[in-house]
Design a protein around this nucleic acid. Structure first.
Lengths: 346, 346
DNA sequence: CTGAAAGCGCTTACAG
DNA sequence: CTGAAAGCGCTTACAG
């Protein structure tokens, strides 16, 4: 016996269901399902009646129910650092576009660089049964995802590798990019070059530092401890680090900035100096060419990161049984002026 | 009689269900549900056994099923123009943060300024039964959402009003902002001021043009037809429009740029000119202060737009029966140099 | 404190 | 061509 009371909470605002459509059209439930899904085997006349009932009632299929039965949600989850960070915008959009070609929607959220929040968000997405998960790691231990991956959630890490588990990952060539950027400064004549980067817990930060050291070593140049500073990318911290390197008896004549946020702060510091200081920054950013001098950068392709990662995700979802792979995308040096300044010999 | 065959497609990769947990723990289904949801009325010993079974099996509740039964998905849908556009980043993040305080996740997607795609996406979100929908309109006819709204989907429009339906909307004061920005240029001595804006189909574009005309009229200044150009924000179109206004016998001495993308292109055009031309742009953007001269802007608060809209959405979801409201947020003039340049009398 | 039955709105696997 | 029954994995509304 069906319940005829009002439910305690409105159920989707009392929307009509296929059952309602079937009743109104005078057909069976399955026939409505056939029409709604464009399946064959319905006479034009029957289809007409069903369509009329659908319009009259304002019926829209509840995909939430469909999904439960079908076992796939046609949804991809994306955990990134900050939805407001312009660096991730093109990546986000690229993931959306690839997902769209596969008929999937995108649920995304920010970890705010907090490993606990990353975990919470990733697991919430798993509870929603996203078909696949793309994660830009905030933390360095992803063993919490092991049961989910084993249970079939396709997972791809982007921008930074996963910690403690084997999984697909798509990276930019942080090491090579930084090495080339620093070599570019060395080629312009610099010998005392500073490196300001993100927190050492971040994989890209240490890789870029490694690239810096490699370039210096290849050129036979020493690296003073005071020329290297890793830490938060908060403007105050970065500005203080830059000023410290620029002071003293043997000041640096050039800076390599470890990412876009560091670069912007360094540009501000340098703009206030009387003497020119060379700068190469990791990551391209809008208007870099309009500053005076234009800012020379090592450009990543964030959209390509997203595209390649999502392609990989859907390869996994189609059942390809490949071993976890690390894909490294190349970077590109864009000279614009700041990286070609010669050392100022004061 | 239950089916014991393999399902044709893997069902969420054969994840354990509450039934599996119940069987392993030797308890009823409802008891597992109580433990998973932290409901009272379970002895510590029973709870222990259930927890052990959950861990052993790697069980994670299927929220997709839960949602079907509960009638609310704890999901908010956001349709914006382009996930990659830096202007919408802070708005996106603000929506996420407010949703998060209400325990809701965010599904978002780009309309790419295509009304059909906006509609398709919004309706797909409704089919997923998002509890609420936040839309940055691409089109100007939203009657397609009428049945959805009637069926209980809370809907709030942001940045631009809905077309053809009554609904909540949260806007920036485009008219007042543009009027003030143009008045600022007039106060600096300009009499021939150009206006370059987005496509006239976009509500904010026509409102800002209206503000421009108002300021000119208030100052008793005529507006030549050749000083106004609305259209695509593609750099080629905008640059051509700017160059045309700057040429001729009576060239403009100042430009009001209708949005951030227009502003950036105009900055490039002006940078190539021998004489200084004043500029005020609608929308703030990163590094505007680092350019020479710094770019004077009418700043909106995109994060506030997102926050206010999402607050409104959850007010609706809590059942408040208010009439549809239009909320207009103020803008702020930020003088940085470009808007204070006097007219160049060549 | 505990659990069996019914149901959320669909699709699947049949049978006619 | 059409539809009744069972089931997806949960929660609800009971009854013990």
């Amino acid at each position: 016996m069906p319940q005829n009371r009002q439910p305690s909470e409105p159920r989707y605002g009392n929307r009509p269901t296929m059952k309602d459509v079937a009743a109104r059209a005078g057909v069976g439930l399955k026939t409505v399902s056939r029409v709604v899904n464009g399946e064959p085997g319905v006479t034009p006349d029957t289809e007409r009646r069903v369509q009329d009932a659908i319009e009259a009632l304002g019926f829209r299929r509840n995909d939430s129910a469909r999904v439960l039965r079908k076992g796939r949600t046609a949804t991809v989850g994306l955990v990134l650092e900050d939805l407001a960070d312009p660096f991730y915008g093109p990546l986000n959009r690229a993931v959306e576009e690839v997902a769209r070609t596969h008929g999937a929607l995108l649920i995304n959220g920010s970890s705010a660089e907090d490993p606990d929040r990353e975990r919470e968000l990733a697991l919430a997405l798993c509870a929603r049964r996203v078909d696949g998960l793309i994660v830009i790691p905030a933390g360095d231990d992803h063993r919490y995802l092991e049961p989910e991956i084993r249970a079939g959630v396709a997972t791809v890490f982007v921008d930074r590798p996963a910690g403690g588990i084997e999984a697909d990952v798509v990276l930019s060539d942080s090491f090579g990019g930084a090495r080339d950027g620093v070599a570019h400064l060395i080629a312009a004549g610099h010998r005392r070059i500073g490196f300001i980067g993100d927190h050492p817990r971040i994989h890209t930060a240490t890789e870029r530092l490694r690239g810096y050291r490699e370039a210096m070593a290849l050129a036979g140049l020493p690296v003073a401890g005071s020329w290297v500073s890793l830490g938060a990318t908060a403007p105050e911290r970065v500005a203080a680090a830059a000023r410290a390197m620029l002071a003293g008896p043997e000041p640096i004549t050039a800076v390599f900035a470890g990412n876009n946020r560091v670069t912007v702060t360094v540009v501000r510091v340098l703009a206030a100096l009387p003497r020119p200081v060379a700068l190469v920054g990791f990551d391209d950013f809008e208007l870099a060419d309009l500053l005076r001098p234009g800012v020379t950068v090592i450009a990543q392709d964030p959209a390509a990161l997203g595209r390649v990662a999502t392609d990989r995700l859907f390869q996994r979802l189609s059942g390809t049984a490949l071993p976890p792979t690390r894909i490294v995308l190349p970077t590109r040096l864009i000279p614009r002026g700041s990286g070609e300044l010669p050392p100022h010999t004061g």
